[in-house]
Amino acid sequence: MKAPAFAYEKPDSLDAALRLLADAGEDAKPIAGGQSLGPLLNFRLTRPSLLVDVRGLVEMSAVGDSHDHLTLGAGTTHAAIEDGRVPDPANGMLRHVAHGIAYRAIRNRGTLGGSLAHADPAADWLSVMTVLDAEVLTATAAGPGVHAAAHFAQGPLATVLEPGELVVAIRIPKLSTRARWSYFKVNRKPGEFAHAIAAVVHDPERDVCRAVVGATGDAPYLIEDARPLLRGFDPRWAADHVSAAGLDAGSHAHRVHVAALRRAGAQIGGVQ
């Protein structure tokens, strides 16, 4: 289990990194913490010709704070979020979720942007950023880009990112102080990838009530209007959404995702 040979560059500026990625084409990959890429390399499941190490770039660890958004550099580690070393715009939701990602040794190096770019359907940030209505800020040699988190993943391990496009930061709307959130993750062991995810965010001041059905084997499924969850749990409503998320009605996975949605609804204080 040794990685195949590849070349490596550690550019000292974002521009240089983008140029390297642009010049090398599809065979080049950016690497930050390497916690998703490392295993793939060791299994020889990916064979980049060139790795461009973006971990040290200042843009990757920048924090931007505006009136209604917080922007976290893509290189922000899960551990930095877990420890509260960066602000949490979601009333503790990010800290809670970060603590449940893999293991501390992984969280110390694994990054928010890397996790999103890897787009494992069972990973946490994809579902969380979708329910929070965050935006993925990117850059290419040609200029910056913005993608809504809800449309960022296009399937398992597939995103809208073009070759040479690098995730630079995540812009997350700030929840109001009255906002509530819930996050229900089904896994058998802490740190395991999820078998089911349901996340709900209810922010009355911003008139937002969104839910996500995640870890479906595909991109997270967004329920833009999740108010029915607050009024009481309607199994039919939930089942329809879980079916729309791509799970076969009658399958165990369908049943477990419906249960996750019910429990996430209950946690946020929905009428049961």
């Binding site: 295993p39 299994f43 058998r188 062991k189 802490p190 395991e192 990838f193």
Partner: peptide
């Protein structure tokens, strides 16, 4: 199950 993420060994919490 070709990884330890798929072949599940019990840890300290299990």
């Amino acid at each position: 199950a070709s990884t330890l993420a798929d072949y599940s060994l019990p840890g300290a919490t299990e």
